[in-house]
Simulated assay, not measured.
Amino acid sequence: MKDEEGIVRALLSGPSDACDAESAELGAIITAMDVFTDIGWKGSCSLIVEMGSKVVYNWILEKSRRPWSQQTYFADFDRKRACARKLSFSLAEVGGNEIADALVSAGMNRPCMFKAWW
């Protein structure tokens, strides 16, 4: 997570029990929303979530497109979204999320969730 100047202020990494890439991305968004709240940024600045999946982006924008199998994730997402004041979503350009690509390439596999902020 970066601040408004683009400086990295938080990192998170952990295992996912998701069966597909879309579920993993949705779980990562929910975790990022948790970290945003835990940091204390909620209410004082905006959270802009940039995602790589057009499918997940469409799920967030249009509830009618959400698959039934993901309803548990979306119930949690909608609760957290309702509490956020300044929250927006955007679709990353192809190859535009260098930090995420670097973490995946580096094999940041952890047996448990890791969250850090400063």
Rank of each mutant, 00 (worst) to 15 (best):
R79T: 05
R79W: 09
K80Q: 10
K80S: 00
R81I: 00
R81Y: 11
R81D: 14
R81K: 14
A82L: 11
A82D: 15
C83H: 12
C83S: 12
A84D: 07
A84R: 01
R85K: 09
K86F: 15
K86M: 13
K86R: 14
L87V: 05
L87S: 04
L87W: 07
S88D: 15
S88L: 12
S88N: 14
F89D: 02
F89I: 01
F89G: 03
S90Q: 14
S90N: 08
S90W: 01
L91T: 05
A92Q: 13
A92V: 03
A92H: 05
A92F: 00
E93C: 06
E93G: 08
E93D: 10
E93R: 14
E93Q: 12
V94N: 08
V94T: 10
G95P: 07
G95C: 07
G95F: 11
G95T: 04
G96C: 03
G96E: 09
G96P: 06
G96K: 03
G96N: 05
N97V: 00
N97S: 06
N97C: 03
N97G: 02
E98R: 03
E98S: 10
E98M: 04
E98C: 05
I99H: 07
I99T: 11
I99N: 08
I99A: 13
A100D: 08
D101F: 02
D101Q: 11
A102E: 15
A102W: 07
L103V: 03
L103P: 00
L103A: 09
L103I: 08
L103M: 14
L103Y: 06
V104M: 09
V104W: 04
A106C: 05
A106R: 12
A106T: 02
A106S: 12
G107S: 05
G107L: 05
G107Q: 06
G107I: 03
G107Y: 06
M108Y: 04
M108R: 06
N109I: 01
